[in-house]
């Protein structure tokens, strides 16, 4: 059983000398393994600040981030085990893999660093992980990132994240840079892995539709505050907060559009 908790976390940035900007304002939530929470917000909402705090690029101004009830250690073995428990998948599969190294190297590294399997089983484990993300291990293992498509690269990034057998996964806009026709495939893969491996997933996104279908709960972040948090269907189908309603009506919804506009005014924009 693994839990990640944000307890009253605030983050204040200094901007130009005197003034400050509150990027996160008293954010609290709990992520358990075996559940998916979508963190929905537009640019500037503070969702990337949360990702930065989780990757320890930033520290909260106030409040605490707890893993299994304990603060995250800043260094040493504790930090290493935190990083092994919680893994990230980034938005840009072109930037998150090193162009000079083969796919094998990318996945071997966390295996060796965290001593996940005995030395002589490394190769088997690399292949198993690649198959796990539905890549043809023989075809990709000796390739370099630039020889793969964007979708394949993101799968490699997922395999790498899985290598240390984490219990939590932070997926920061994992598909927004991929071609639309392969996005769902990658999301399906993440959903399957989540279920089969019992992972806790924090799915950070701007897209309400995938958030709804992919997650158990949705948290809506607006100007650093969680304005709404609840079961996915409730938040989308029956939004309580004004901002969530605004977001919902701004998101394209052709189904509703064609259902209501039987005789469509010429070129009307809702």
């Amino acid at each position: 059983m693994t839990t990640l908790e944000f307890v009253n976390v605030s983050k204040r940035y200094r901007v130009r000398g005197a003034s400050t900007m509150l990027a996160l304002d008293d954010v609290s939530f709990t992520l358990h393994d075996r559940e998916t929470i979508a963190l929905v917000g537009q640019s500037g909402s503070g969702k990337s600040t949360i990702a930065k705090i989780l990757t320890q690029l930033e520290t909260p101004t106030s409040g605490e981030v707890l893993l299994n009830g304990k603060p995250i250690p800043r260094h040493g073995r504790g930090l290493r085990s935190y990083r092994q428990t919680l893994r990230m998948i980034f938005q840009d599969p072109f930037a998150s893999l090193n162009p000079y190294h083969s796919i094998r190297y990318h996945i071997e590294r966390p295996l060796r660093l965290d001593n996940v399997v005995p030395q002589n089983e490394t190769e088997t484990e690399v292949r198993r992980l690649l198959e796990r993300v539905r890549l043809d291990a023989d075809a990709v293992i000796d390739r370099r990132p630039h020889e793969l498509s964007g979708g394949q690269r993101q799968r490699v990034a997922i395999a790498r994240a899985l290598a240390s057998r984490p219990s939590l996964l932070i997926a920061d806009e994992p598909v927004s840079m991929l071609d639309v026709s392969i996005r769902l495939g990658v999301l399906h893969l993440l959903a399957d892995l989540q279920r089969e491996e019992g992972l806790g997933v924090l799915y950070i996104t701007h897209d309400l539709a995938t958030a709804r279908h992919f997650s158990d709960q949705i948290m809506v972040l607006h100007q650093g505050r969680v304005v709404e948090h609840g079961p996915a269907d409730d938040v989308i189908l029956n939004p309580q907060h004004e901002y969530t309603r605004e977001l919902r009506s701004a998101s394209p919804d052709p189904e509703k559009h064609f259902a209501t506009a039987s005789t469509r005014p010429q070129g009307g924009v809702a």
Partner: peptide
């Protein structure tokens, strides 16, 4: 490729 925002849940098989 685009899940429906308000439509039937289940475009993503879970």
């Amino acid at each position: 490729s685009f899940p429906r925002l308000t439509g039937e849940r289940g475009v993503l098989v879970r």
